[in-house]
């Protein structure tokens, strides 16, 4: 079976600044991988490239059979990103945001209600405008979208950040379920103790490359 993610000497740039400088890795379908590395190692850039937000400059990158050099839009439909930002519209309610995004992805919008309930956003919160939510509730809304979409590849960038203890436990439960359902998950986190039990293996990044050993920052 083809790997879910395959990178060969992948380079991504922001202007002339290298975000990734020759990253190579392979992740099998159904694996849960913990991305680790110091600040600026390229973890966020890698996740953003895999969902097609950052362009591949050179090398090769194939995500779920879609070559990112040729078909970024194709990959996006199968990939879900929980990034530093929530990707929500402030003026819309939780439910409206979820239903809009699900329709955009061609997913049944009725799944919004179930996902919102699961993340503790049911009842009055569902009809609350996002601008009135706390940071943690926004994070839960973004996570609810991912749960409702249930993409084949989950990209989680510091997913525990901003969540309370209950939210963190819920997130861990959701990742474990995704793993049981055969989804592939890439999880970038500085909270190793929290992330380690969820993951099959660790990939270390430093200077925009995959490295074999952790890099100690002086």
């Amino acid at each position: 079976m083809a790997p879910a993610v395959s990178l060969r000497e992948a380079v991504a740039l922001a202007g002339h600044f290298p975000l990734l400088s020759g990253a190579s890795l392979e992740i099998e379908e159904g694996e849960v991988v913990h991305l680790r590395g110091p600040n600026g190692a390229g973890k966020t850039s890698l996740l953003r490239m895999l969902c097609g937000l950052v362009a591949l400059h050179s090398g090769s990158a194939v995500v779920l059979g879609h070559d990112l050099a040729l078909d970024r839009r194709g990959a996006r439909r199968s990939v879900g990103l929980l990034g530093h930002q929530s990707f929500l519209y402030d003026e819309l309610t939780v439910e409206e945001n979820l239903r809009y995004s699900l329709r955009a992805f061609g997913v049944d919008p009725l799944r919004a209600g179930v996902a919102a309930e699961r993340l503790g956003l049911g009842g009055r919160l569902a009809s609350t405008q996002v601008l009135k939510l706390s940071a943690g509730q926004r994070r839960r809304t973004a996570l609810a979208l991912l749960v409702a979409r249930d993409p084949r590849l989950w990209l989680l960038d510091e997913p525990h950040a901003g969540l309370d203890q209950e939210g963190r436990d819920l997130l861990d439960e959701i990742v474990s379920e995704s793993r049981s359902d055969g989804r592939t998950v890439l999880l970038s986190s500085h909270e190793h103790e929290r992330a380690a039990p969820l993951c099959d293996r660790v990939i270390w990044l430093a200077g925009g490359r995959v490295v074999k050993e952790p890099v100690v920052v002086a």
Binding site: R73, R76, R77, S86, Y89, D90, S101, F105, G106
Partner: peptide, 17 residues
């Protein structure tokens, strides 16, 4: 401007629309 808040522009690109 509504697409600039909270990464919504990225969401627009990611949406597959």
């Amino acid at each position: 401007a509504v697409e600039a808040s909270d990464g919504a522009r990225d969401a627009l690109r990611l949406s597959g629309l």
